[in-house]
Amino acid sequence: MSGLLALLDDVAAIAKVAAASVDDIGAAAVKAGSKTAGVLIDDAAVTPKYLHGFAPARELPIIWRIARGSLINKLVFLLPAALLMSSFAPWLIPPLLILGGSYLCFEGAEKIAHVFGIHSTGPGGPDGSHSVEDPLHLEEEKVKGAIKTDFILSAEIMTIALSVIDSDNIWMQGATLALVGVMVTLAVYGAVAVIVKMDDVGLWLSRVGRLSLTRAFGRGIVRFMPWLLTSLTVIGTAAMLWVGGSIIVHSLAQMGWPGPENSIHHLAVAFGGGQGFAEWGITAGIDFVLGLIWGLILIPVGVRIVGPVWAAIMPKSL
C-alpha cells in the first residue's frame, strides 16, 4: 500500500512539473508573440491584396492554402533552422534580427515613398502587377507569391520569438516556437478571413435583412471595410518602421554597440517626465524615425539589387 501511495505521489509530482512546463511554454509563447506585433499587423494588412480579382467563393480556399503554406514555412523549415542556430550559432541571432528589421524598414519606407509618388521600378511579381488570363494559373501565382512573402515575415517572427525565450532548453524553445507559429498563423489568417468576407456579409445583410436597422447595419459594414483596410495599411506601415527601428537598435546593443539604445533611453527619460507611457511613446517615435531613415536609404538597394536577385532565385526553390 505504501508503495502505491509513493507511486501516486511521484505521478502527482510529474503532473505538477508537466503542468508548470505547459504554463511556462504558454507564457513564453504569449511574450514572444507580443514582440512580433508589428510583423503580424503587416502580414494581416498585406495578405488581402492577393485575393483581389477572385470570385468570393474562392477567397476562403485561397486563404486556407496560404495559411497552410505559412504553417509549413514556420514548422517545417524555420523552426528546425531556428533551433539549430540557437544550439550551434547563437551569435547569428542579432545579425539576422538586424536583417529582418532592415526588411521591415525597407517595406515601410517604400510604402510611404509610394504614397508621395516615388514608385518602385522593380520587376512585377505575382501580386497582380502582371495580368494572367487563366484563373487557375493566376490563383497559383498569387498563392505562391503570398507564401514567398510569408516566408520572409515568418522568418522574422520566429527569430524575434527565439530572441525573447529565456530558457536554454531546446525542447522548451521548440515547443514555444511551435506554439508561437500556430498562434500567429491562426491569428493572422483568421483575421484576414474575417476581413475579406465582412463586405460580403454586409452586402448580404443589406439585401435580405428583414429590419431596416439590419439592412442599414449591412450597408454600414460595406462602407466601413475600405476605411478599415486603409487603416490597417497605415497602422501596419507605422508598426513596421517602429518595430524595425527598435529591432535594429536593440540588436546593435547586443552586438556590442549600446550607444544608440542608451541615447534613446536617456532622451525618453529626460523628456518623458518619469511617465512610463510617455517614455515608451518617445522611444517608439525615435525608433520610427530611425526606421524610416534607414528604410529610405535601403530603397535603392532593395529595388535595384535585392529585388531582382530574390525574384530570380525564389521560383526555383518553391
Rank of each mutant, 00 (worst) to 15 (best):
I247H: 00
V234T: 08
T233E: 12
T237C: 12
V249L: 06
E261Q: 10
L232V: 02
W242C: 12
W227H: 15
P226W: 07
T230M: 11
L267N: 02
S263I: 10
I248T: 02
L232C: 01
V269C: 02
L267T: 08
V243W: 08
G245R: 01
A239Y: 00
G244I: 01
V243A: 11
I235T: 14
A270H: 10
G273Q: 12
L229Y: 04
W257H: 06
H250Q: 15
T233Y: 06
P226F: 04
G272D: 09
H265M: 08
F271W: 13
G236W: 02
H250L: 15
A238N: 13
M255K: 14
G244C: 00
G274D: 12
G236C: 12
P258S: 06
S231P: 09
T237S: 12
G245N: 03
G244A: 00
N262W: 05
L267V: 10
A238E: 14
Q254N: 04
H266Y: 07
W242A: 14
V234Q: 13
G244R: 00
Q254F: 04
T230H: 11
W242M: 14
W242R: 12
H265V: 09
G274R: 03
L267H: 03
I235D: 03
V249M: 08
S246N: 14
Q254R: 11
L232F: 03
W227I: 15
G245F: 02
L232D: 03
S231M: 06
I247F: 01
I235L: 15
V234P: 10
H265D: 11
P260N: 07
M240N: 13
T237N: 08
S231V: 07
G245W: 01
L252V: 09
F271C: 08
V269R: 03
N262G: 03
I264S: 02
A253Y: 03
T237Y: 04
A239N: 00
M240V: 07
P226M: 02
T237K: 02
M255T: 10
I264W: 01
G256N: 13
S263R: 06
G272N: 14
G256R: 04
W242H: 08
W227T: 15
V234H: 11
P260E: 12
S263W: 14
I247C: 01
P260W: 05
A270R: 11
V249E: 11
M255G: 10
L252I: 07
G236V: 06
P260S: 07
T233D: 14
V243I: 08
P226Q: 09
G274W: 05
G244W: 00
L232T: 03
G236Q: 13
A239T: 01
G236T: 09
S263F: 14
S251G: 08
I235W: 05
M255A: 11
V249W: 07
E261Y: 04
W257Q: 12
L252H: 04
A268N: 06
A239K: 00
L228I: 13
A270S: 14
I247Q: 05
L241V: 09
H266V: 10
N262E: 10
A268P: 07
L228E: 10
I248N: 00
